[in-house]
Computed example of a mutant assay.
Amino acid sequence: MIDWQDLQVLTLLARNGSLSAAARELGVEHATIGRRIDSLEKNLGLRLVDRLPRSRPLTKDGLAVAALAQNMAQQAALIEQRSRMASAGLAGVVRVSVPPSLARACIAPKIARLNASHPDLQLVLLPGTALAALNKGEADVAIRSVRPEDDGLIRKRIGAVRFGLYGTAKFSRHPPEDWTFISYDQSLDHLPQQMWLHRIRSGRRIAFFASDLLTQQIAASNHIGAVVLPTIIGERDAVLIQLPTNEAPPVRDIWLTAYPDVKRSPVVNAVIDFLIACVEEEPLLADRT
């Protein structure tokens, strides 16, 4: 069997004219070039260079083989170019489970960029507070605010969600002891931001319950009460302002997860790169640890 690397060395020797020059281009010792040529001659049964005291000029056969090998190198370059072009036009469907706040404020505004790079790639966002079961095929990739415990998953911490208490300027003028609050229902009392809300309200009344954050935000914008929002949502709401609290708000890590066999897909990798960029480009989600 002919070693392709031996043929590459022969083309370098033909182009550079000496072992030392070929070695410099390849970044190896000149003795390595000599060994490669010896190996190629043995495999082909041909003398490819004349071993003169001060030089190693190619023989007639050496020049002919080098010319053929050069054509092979050009074909290899064309194959690599074709591969890059194919990768640039990735096609397929990738489903991503993601918290609704990140889907709305971080990922959705940047979808045009993904479409421009990969017009045949379809990203399906699955916003929800429930954790999609990757092992059951409910999603290909997940962004979560809790660290996955499954050791079979690839896990990457890509940022952090910070929270604040928000209300309208009109609402903020009420005496704090008269403030009312907007909350998830009791089924989500285990969430760090929900537990924080209960601590800071100190028994003050919850005026409205809603299972989704957008509804809570709308209610707060209509002076119903104070609401806990991710800063990426609250700081960009023109109606709401951040309200003072007597306890620092929670910070939740953002984890990107997928199974290794899924991540081997070029389509999935393109989406993962896009999702990481979406989070890392957001100052309000920056990893400050």
Score class of each variant (00 low, 15 high):
residue 182 I to N: 00
residue 286 A to W: 12
residue 262 V to P: 09
residue 229 L to M: 06
residue 61 D to P: 03
residue 179 W to I: 02
residue 168 T to F: 06
residue 5 Q to T: 13
residue 60 K to M: 11
residue 87 S to Y: 05
residue 81 Q to P: 08
residue 233 I to A: 03
residue 41 E to G: 04
residue 247 E to N: 07
residue 89 G to K: 06
residue 188 L to G: 01
residue 256 L to C: 05
residue 179 W to G: 00
residue 260 P to L: 03
residue 183 S to A: 15
residue 95 R to W: 03
residue 52 L to W: 01
residue 7 L to Q: 01
residue 211 S to C: 09
residue 83 S to D: 11
residue 88 A to S: 07
residue 143 I to L: 15
residue 184 Y to F: 15
residue 4 W to R: 15
residue 283 P to M: 04
residue 77 A to I: 00
residue 28 V to D: 06
residue 89 G to P: 02
residue 55 S to R: 15
residue 127 P to H: 05
residue 25 E to L: 11
residue 217 Q to N: 10
residue 93 V to I: 13
residue 53 P to R: 05
residue 271 V to Q: 00
residue 248 A to D: 13
residue 73 A to R: 13
residue 148 P to F: 05
residue 60 K to S: 15
residue 99 P to G: 04
residue 203 G to F: 15
residue 84 R to K: 04
residue 138 E to P: 08
residue 141 V to P: 06
residue 47 R to G: 03
residue 24 R to H: 11
residue 265 S to G: 03
residue 279 V to C: 02
residue 122 Q to G: 02
residue 282 E to C: 12
residue 139 A to I: 01
residue 115 N to S: 12
residue 2 I to A: 10
residue 91 A to R: 05
residue 254 I to T: 09
residue 245 T to K: 00
residue 130 A to G: 07
residue 95 R to N: 11
residue 41 E to M: 06
residue 136 K to H: 14
residue 137 G to Y: 11
residue 80 E to P: 02
residue 110 K to L: 05
residue 98 V to L: 09
residue 244 P to N: 07
residue 147 R to N: 06
residue 182 I to D: 02
residue 161 V to Q: 12
residue 66 A to T: 02
